[in-house]
Design a binder for these strands. Sequence first.
DNA 1: TCGCTATATGAGAATAATCGCATACTCTCA
DNA 2: TGAGAGTATGCGATTATTCTCATATAGCGA
Lengths: 99, 99
Amino acid sequence: MQTKQNLDYKQQARLLRALANETRLKIIDALSRGEMHVGALAEATGAEQSSVSKHLAVLRAVGVVDDERRGNEVYYRLLTPCVVEFFSCALRVIKERQA
Amino acid sequence: MQTKQNLDYKQQARLLRALANETRLKIIDALSRGEMHVGALAEATGAEQSSVSKHLAVLRAVGVVDDERRGNEVYYRLLTPCVVEFFSCALRVIKERQA
DNA sequence: TCGCTATATGAGAATAATCGCATACTCTCA
DNA sequence: TGAGAGTATGCGATTATTCTCATATAGCGA
């Protein structure tokens, strides 16, 4: 029998994989300061539009972001701000490693 | 010029990639309850010894775990307990997504 | 030293992630 | 309806990740 625990590991890994990309981290960081549309995110991250669009799809698939079309543009926002807390831990780990 | 920010994204992504694997999550979870040697981790995770050993190398490379040999066995322990905090957020994201 | 146990490492195959380019889709406005 | 802007998607090439099996290394006790 597949335990509930195992399912959690699978889903957690899936979420972490979604976060484990430099461009997606930049996107999340940008969105942590407020919603943005795709073009602005492309500019903010320095990545191609189609690439940003794909990264956003990954983040949306795991429920980290949300999108809303307004006219021609599609605005994205961070659904789960606690994701940003990840990074304070990440920075601590990185700092400790350097020490 | 490569900014400090960009380096941070790169390192954060590296750390997240190290965490983004089901078996490694199981390992971290097991270690959060106390140090364990490789064989015990293999049994706890249900993965092969050589596989566990490689996963441990990945975690060690990013500074999340530490190892110490005692006789024939090598004991691993979690260096950065805050990593476990990741998961409360992860679970929240997953729960919110299901809602 | 020899045999045994525990762990680590290497090679190769299979799978997954990423990127760039081209193109399709969607909405607005004239 | 047609043009143009903004966004999404499909495809192929490249690179990264993961697994398994075989082998190497390290320490133990006889």
